[in-house]
C-alpha cells in the first residue's frame, strides 16, 4: 500500500464526508490530527455547532483514494464521532462556498 498518492496519478474523485461529533474543545484537533498523521490530505473543512449545541457537524472534502475506507474506519473509532456519512462530490455544501474563495 503506497503511503503517498500522487494527485496526478490518482483518480481525483472528490468525496464529501459529513460527521456528527460531540461539541467540545478538542474535537477538531482529534479529527484533523487523525488525517494529518495518516498522511491523508483534507482539501476542505467546515464545522458549526448544531442547534442543540451538544453536537457539531463537520464537513470534510477529501479525495477518493485506496485508503479512504481505512480512513473512514479510523474516524468512526474516535470516541467523539457519533456518525460518518459519505456523499459524492456533487454535494452542495462546498460548492455554495466557492464564491467566498474567489
Amino acid at each position: 500500500m503506497s503511503m503517498v498518492i500522487e494527485r496526478e496519478a490518482a483518480a481525483v474523485t472528490k468525496v464529501v464526508l459529513e460527521l456528527e461529533v460531540a461539541n467540545h474543545a478538542g474535537v477538531m484537533s482529534h479529527i484533523c490530527g487523525l488525517f494529518a498523521r495518516r498522511a491523508f490530505n483534507v482539501e476542505g473543512i467546515l464545522c458549526m455547532p448544531l442547534p442543540d449545541a451538544t453536537r457539531s457537524r463537520i464537513w470534510l472534502l477529501v479525495f477518493e483514494d485506496e485508503r479512504l475506507e481505512q480512513m473512514i474506519k479510523q474516524v468512526e473509532k474516535l470516541e467523539d464521532v457519533i456518525s460518518v456519512v459519505r456523499h459524492g462530490a456533487e454535494h452542495a455544501v462546498f460548492e455554495r462556498l466557492e464564491t467566498f474563495f474567489r
Binding site: A25, G26, S29, H30, G33, L34, R37, L78, E79, D80
Partner: peptide
C-alpha cells in the same frame, strides 16, 4: 498535554 497525547491515546480528556 491534551494536544500532545491525542495521537498516542485511545481517547483523552481535559
Amino acid at each position: 498535554t491534551y494536544g500532545m497525547t491525542i495521537p498516542l491515546t485511545k481517547h483523552n480528556f481535559l
